[in-house]
Structures are given as C-alpha cells and as structure tokens.
Nucleic acid binder design. Structure first.
Length: 807
RNA sequence: GCCGGUGUGGCGAAAUGGCAGACGCGACGGACUCAAAAUCCGUUUCCCCCUAAAGGAGUGUCGGUUCGAGUCCGACCACCGGCACCA
C-alpha cells in the first residue's frame, strides 16, 4: 500500500476506537504490581478551533502515552474542557447565542479536530466543567473548605474592572489592565469570598524542592510566594495607640528618623478626619491608577500630626502618609531608615529628614556591624536582631511574611460555578446544605453586556429559603473564578461518573501523582499554584494522598509564525486542520516533535519542515513496500555478513537510545533523528546481502514499533503489511539485544596531548593493555610521538579512546 | 534593581566530561525526463592548497580545573523570560 494518509488515517483511527485500546483501567482492574503512568495535558478552553500550540502539547503527551503503553505500563491519558469563562458570555452578548450552546458546539468541533490527530485519549473519561455533574463538586468542595475555615468572607480592596463588571485576581492584572481583554482595572473595596492560600504558603514553598519541574517555573513560584524573614515591632504613638511595622532590618532600628504608613492605613485614615490637607493627599494617591503608581518611582509623602516614640531612645519620630507603602504587604507601615534603605533614603532627601548612619558595611544597604546604636553598638547585624527582640520584651518578635495573597474567588459573572451560599436576613451568609447541590445555573437570564451579573435578573434563581432557619432568603449571585475548575479536574478524570464524591480515594491512590504534566509556561504562577494548593487541601480533607499532584512538569514552547505569536488579529494563523488535510496527521506530529527541543519555540516559517517530515514517511513506506514478508529465522551472528551485522548493531543501539530518550531524558526531537538514522542505515543494506529477507523482516518489524508513538497511523499500516499480529500500538516496545550493542571490531580514537591524531581498529575483546599498545603503534600518532617521551596514558571507561601525554 | 534561562554552520539543531556540527531544512552540482515536478546520488564551518594528502583555527569574551571542556568552575558581554516602591 502506498503512503496515502488522507485515506488511511481515518480508517486506522476507527480501528483504535473500536478496539478500546485507549481505555484506562479502574483501580480495581489494575493487575497486582502493575506500573501506572498518568500522562496529563492542561485541559483546553473550548474557544472554537485548536491551534498549533494544542497540536504540539497533545502530540508530546501522546508520544509519551503510547510509548508507556508499549513498554507495558498501565496508562491514564484523558482530556476534558475548561468550559466556564468570559468568552462564552461575550459570545452570548455579541451573537445572542446561549453560553451553553456556544460551548457545546465548540467542544464538538475541537474534539473532532483532536481525534483527527490520532491522540490516544480515553474519551470515556471526558469531562467538561460547565456541566453540573462537574461543577457540583466545586460547590461540594467549597462547602468542605468552608467547614474547615479554608473559605472566608472579607472586605478587601479588589482589582475591579468596570467594563467587565467583575473582580480579577492579582495574577490576572497586568499593567493595570485585564491580562485577557486589556480593559482598565481600578482598586475598589468589596466583600469577597477567599480561599486561605496563605495558610499553605510555607508548604507550597518548600515542596518545590522535591519537584522535577523546570527551574524557571520553580523560581517564578518562589518569587510569587515571596517569603521574607524579619520582625514585627510595635511603636507607641503619642496619645496612646500603637502602630506595628514589619522590617527585615531590625538591626537598623537606631537609624529610624520617620515612619511611613500607607494612605489606607487606619492610623492615617483617622488622622485625615481632622486634617483636610492629609485627606487631600490620600485622595490624590487613591485616584492614581495602579499603573501610574508603579510607573513613577517618585516618593510622595505628607506629614501627619501624629508622632511615634522610638522604643529605645524615646525620641519623637514624625509619621508620614506615603505613596510607596503598600497596605496589602506586611503591616502597611514602615519604619523609615534613610541611611540603609534606598527608598527611605530618597524619601528623606526629598523631605529634609536626617540620615544617621548606624551600620558599618561594604555598601550602605548591606548587613554589617552596628554603630551609634546605644548598647548594641559593635554587634553584628544578625546578632543585633536577636538581642533587640529580647530587649524589646514582647513589643517585637521575629516573623515571616509572604507576598502570596489569599485567593479571591468571587466573580460577578454568569458563566461560572454558582457559589453555594445564601443570604438570610436573620442568619447572615449561610452555606447551602450538601444534599441540595448542585446549585444550578438558571436558564432564564438576559445577556446585556453591561450592568450587574445576569444572575441577579433571575427570580427563579434568587428566591430561596435559608438552609438554617427556613425563612425566605436570597441566593448568592457571585460565581467562582474559573481557576477553581482547573484546580482539581485531573482527579475527576480518575472517577468521572462518581455520584457520591468528587472522586474515590482508591482511584486517586492508584494513579496519583501525575507522572508527566505538559502545558504552557503561562500557567507557571496561577494555575500551577492553585492546583498545588487545592491538592494540599484535598489531602488534609482526607480525599487524596501525597503532598504534590504533578511530579514532573514540562512546559512546551510556543509555535510562532515569522517570529511572532500566531493570532487572529495578526492574521498569521496556520490552521492545523489545513495541514492535516494536506499532509496527514503523522507528518504534522513528526514535524512538531522533530523541529526543536520541546521547551523551545518553533518558528513555522514555511512548509519546508513538514515537507521534510512527509518525505521521510514516504521513504519508509517505500522501504516496507519493497520488502517481501519473510518467515525465515534470523541467522546467528556468526553467519551474518558484515553489513548485516552492522545494521543489526545500529538497530539495537537505536533501541537503547530511543528508550532512554523517551523514558528518562524526555528528549523527543532526538527520537525522530534516531529513527531517521536507522532508516538511512536500512536503506544502505546491500541488495545482495545473503540473508536480506530475514534481516530486513527483523529490522523493519522493530523499526515500525519504534516509530509507532510518533507516527502511529503509518506504523499501524506498515505493521499490517509486515504481517504483525493485532495492533501495532499494542505490540511490545522492542528490547535492545546486548549481543548486538557492540561490533566485533571497535574503533579507538588516539589522542596526543589532547588532540585527536589517529584512529585504530581493535577487536571488541581487546584488553586495556591491547588498546594502549595499538594506540602507541598507530602510524598517525607515531609522527607526533617521535623524539618525545610518553609520560602518561589514559584509557577512560569504555575503552573507545586512548589519551597519550608526551613531553 | 533582583531572580532564572540561553548563546554551536546560511537555518532548526545534535554531542548523557571523550572524534564538534549527527539528523533535518535550504543551497549548489549531477542522474532520470523532450521538459518540469517527484525521486535518487553527491557537495555544503573557516583558513592554507589547482586538487588531494597533511596541517591550522573554531561552540559569545576572558581566565581556571582536567590527560581531555560546547559540556564543570569564576568573571564579563549579549539576548530572552519572570518579578519589581515587598519594607
């Protein structure tokens, strides 16, 4: 059969689906002692069409899943849909189509596209977060967390987007704009639901050490969590009250010449009540957008009428409201040490404050030895902190702060999981009873595109009774951030139809942790921190085991076109469907794997790359085509011609290398070049080789299995042609035969003073002494040895090289 | 500013301390063809050289460790990414 992927691929996909070869076993079905492999890709948002980024991601996952199956592992390889979120709601506003309908159509479309790629997903485990048998478990988990105190309500200044009418997480705000739509974001106080992520800040930080994740992702998470060791210290204010500061440099305490408080700090707000000028300053700072505040690093301040008292010297210290102090970090108050902090220094210069030096060090910002610090003078910074905390007797303590914030999950949108609480005039905010779940999204809502959430227009949704007192009450109209959906979805795949629980522990114990997780780097801080947080909560709820959900993470690089991201607005999209309908899925898969190492970007400059992939597939089809199926037994090593032997050695070396690349190194592009090298070696076997039929049958049989993870359709076709039993995808991965890993004769490289000067052939059985002798006798090396003394001979393990050192 | 990563032919890249440039793309030359496409064969880091043999240089720069460094260590340069008034 010739290479006709467009005809053959759909037929082969049908055989796979009918055979159930993609199905993953349930925990109870797993044979005792079986190795499991959970291959997970980040679930897609059903935007309408798949793009090259999906193709790259899913191909990589599929290569691994198929390889592991052939190796004999039990493989879990599912896919689902992250199907709540703003685009569906926008489509409803723009085109008058209900979000559910829009979402269903998109899923159907994209699923068809993904199936055309021949990705081996167990579709029986498919889930979609917009379906109530998924999101009811978001609600159930929310109630569990409420019970444990992992959910709380609080007034917080939030990132408010007027255009969208909703709150955004810090992670979703970039440069004062919504990272997705670019709409401006302002600060506004609002009562919100929060997950207490800060409770796990320390564990989220130290567990990173044990993960096999890319360095940059771990670093981004560490920065995001932002652990900082220091001390809290309370300053007395004139008139009785106190203000608490957080500092990492308690040792500089004698250098304090002012206090800087956030304009939102209660002490400042109170002072502003009787101080119009201070009030005006605070209003001016509040009016600045977050962007402007960050853009200008000009330190602005306004002196209040309040003074603090230095705990050691008893001196009066002026209290300022300052624009550079953030209310949501530390305590919202800073002790100003102009001599040893860059920002305080700039501030003091501007407002004419004294700048006394209290640390002697290489640079004024470094730790060092204390000077002008009373009884602490002469101590090292580290020791001074401990001594001062002791001396301050309860007024100060060592403490740790984090940049990580609690996760605000309220969204004033329709297309999300309804938060399962009720507002009762008598009982306040009351959680819904678990037996009343799911709280379903109502259908009778209007999508106008402006004003409050559509949920607030549905009487059938709003009117309810209080789960506590039974009197009439109003449902919560906030929905959950869609990141909740993606924070535990991989566990629902393991038990997608469970009506009692989000998933059975037996299933998660059988499959978790995920062995390989593949997705885009853009999820380094948001999704990948939330998911880790949720898993820790689930563990503490007794629902899952183990500290971390994703053991190994790979972030695949983007697919670019002419140096920039493919996007509709740029009009530079290469549609995967078009490529498949011209070259077939295997050619596209092969190209994606081969083009570059997986974590690097691929630039789709033109179709040359995929032409090359297609050429390779045609060549190997021809190779099998020209071979006649041969039932002869493979002769023993001694009977083979040198060329035949060389080919078998190449085959077995390739098997060893590919196995290593796929199993341990997760290096995929060299898998393809290994296949190409082997195919070149097969082509080089002379037509008149004495045992050509048997050797070719043996080599092609293995070759087809080796290529199966990358180009599974063609492998399946060639497997049939070669007379292989059953499906190639269910055949065993070839094992390297140790007898064929080394040739009879091996080449030894001869170095003289570190430079390659010659090569000699020795029998594989040659001892180290033989190899030394052969190297010394090597004619090319002789020329460089003449008249000199050999002072040292090094033969590294493996004996493929002899290094001669001469004087 | 802080943190992380990356620098190798015309291009994508390989080299798991041991022959730098495997494999592929492109280009050039040739075969087949009336011609083209497709396919097949060959050449393709630089210098010296008619050519070859034989040399020499070469993995961002400078230094170090080592019999041996693209790989390990130190400093620097360039680029990419993340964070950033975080007290």
């Amino acid at each position: 059969m010739p290479f006709q992927p467009l005809q053959q691929e759909p037929e082969i996909q049908r055989r796979w689906l009918e055979s159930g070869a993609f199905r993953a076993k349930r925990a109870a079905e797993l044979p005792a002692g079986s190795r499991t492999f959970y291959m997970l890709v980040m679930l897609p948002y059903p935007s309408g069409r798949i793009h090259m980024g999906h193709v790259r991601n899913y191909t990589l996952g599929d290569v691994t899943a198929r390889f592991r199956r052939m190796r004999g592992d039990e493989v879990m390889h599912p896919l689902g849909w992250d199907s709540f979120g703003l685009p569906a709601e926008n489509a409803a506003i723009k085109h008058g189509i209900h979000p559910a309908l829009w979402t269903r159509r998109n899923i159907e479309e994209m699923k068809g596209q993904i199936q055309k790629m021949g990705i081996s997903y167990d579709w029986d485990r498919e889930i979609a977060s917009f379906q109530d048998d998924y999101y009811r478990w978001n609600q159930w988990l929310f109630l569990q967390m409420w019970e444990r105190g992992d959910v709380f309500r609080a007034m917080r200044t939030v990132n408010w987007c007027e255009e969208l009418g909703t709150v955004l997480a810090n992670e979703q705000v970039v440069d004062g704009k919504d990272e997705r739509t670019g709409y401006p974001v302002v600060q506004k106080p609002l009562e919100q639901y929060f997950f207490r992520t800060t409770k796990y800040a320390d564990e989220l930080l130290y567990c990173l050490d044990g993960l096999d994740w890319p360095d940059n992702v771990k670093t981004m998470q560490r920065n995001w969590i932002g652990r900082s060791e220091g001390a809290r210290l309370a300053f007395d204010l004139e008139g009785g009250s106190q203000v608490e500061v957080f500092t990492t440099r308690l040792d500089t305490l004698f250098g304090v010449t002012f206090m800087a408080l956030s304009t939102e700090h209660p002490v400042i707000e109170k002072a502003a009540e009787t101080d119009p000028a201070l009030k005006a300053f605070c209003d001016q700072v509040a009016a600045m957008s977050r962007e402007d505040r960050l853009m200008s690093d000009i330190k602005l301040g306004h002196r209040s009428a309040v003074s603090a008292i230095h705990p050691f010297t008893g001196e009066k210290v002026p209290v300022f409201a300052a624009n550079y102090v953030l209310m949501d970090y530390g305590t919202g108050a800073v002790m100003g040490v102009p001599a040893h902090d860059e920002r305080d220094h700039a501030f003091a210069l501007k407002y004419g404050l004294p700048i006394p030096k209290v640390i002697e060090a290489e640079s004024e910002w470094d730790l060092g030895v204390l000077v002008n610090s009373g009884e602490f003078t002469g101590m090292r910074s580290e020791d001074a902190v401990t001594a001062m905390v002791a001396k301050l007797q309860g007024r100060a303590e060592k403490t740790v702060t984090y940049k990580l914030k609690d996760w605000g999950l309220s969204r004033q949108r329709y297309w999300g999981t309804p938060i399962p609480t009720v507002h009762c005039p008598a009982c306040g905010v009351v959680p819904e009873r678990p037996e009343n779940l799911p709280v379903r999204l109502p259908e009778d809502v209007a999508f106008t595109g402006h004003g409050p959430s559509p949920l607030t227009t549905s009487a059938s949704f709003l009117d309810t009774t209080c789960p506590h007192c039974g009197k009439p009450a109003r449902r919560e109209t906030d929905t959950m951030d869609t990141f909740v959906d993606s924070s535990w979805y991989w566990l629902r795949y393991l038990d997608p139809k469970n009506p009692e629980l989000p998933f059975a522990k037996a299933e998660s114990d059988a499959w978790m942790p995920v062995d390989l997780y593949v997705g885009g780097i853009e999820h380094a801080t948001m999704h990948l921190i939330y998911a880790r947080y949720f898993y820790k909560v689930l563990r503490d709820l007794g629902l899952a085991s183990g500290p971390e959900p994703f053991q190994k993470l790979i972030c695949q690089g983007m697919v670019l076109k002419d140096g920039s991201k493919m996007s509709k607005s740029r009009g530079n999209i290469v549609d995967p469907d078009e490529v498949i309908s011209k070259y077939g899925a295997d050619a596209l898969r092969l190209f994606m794997i081969f083009a570059a190492p997986i974590e690097k970007e691929i630039d789709w400059t033109g179709f040359e790359g995929i032409e090359g992939a297609s050429r390779f597939l045609k060549r190997i089809t021809r190779m099998v085509e020209e071979h006649e199926v041969c039932g002869d037994a493979l002769p023993g090593r001694d009977q083979l011609s040198p060329e035949e032997k060389a080919l078998l050695i190449k085959l077995n070396q390739t098997i060893a290398r590919l196995t290593d690349d796929l199993e341990k190194r997760y290096q995929f592009n060299t898998v393809v070049s290994g296949l190409m090298e082997l195919s070149n070696a097969i082509t080089d076997l002379p037509a008149d080789a004495p045992h050509r039929g048997a050797v070719m049958q043996h080599v092609l049989d293995a070759f087809v299995r080796l290529m199966s993870p990358v180009a599974p359709h063609l492998a399946e076709q060639l497997w049939s042609q070669l007379g292989g039993p059953g499906l190639c995808m269910q055949a065993a991965w070839p094992a390297a035969d140790p007898a064929y890993l080394e040739a009879d004769e091996v080449m030894v490289v001869v170095q003289v003073n570190g430079k390659v000067r010659g090569r000699v052939n020795v029998p594989a059985s040659a001892t180290e002494a033989d190899r030394r002798a052969a190297a010394l006798a090597c004619p090319e090396a002789q020329a460089h040895l003449a008249g000199k003394e050999v002072v040292k001979i090094v033969v590294p393990p493996g004996g493929k090289l002899v290094s001669l050192v001469v004087k």
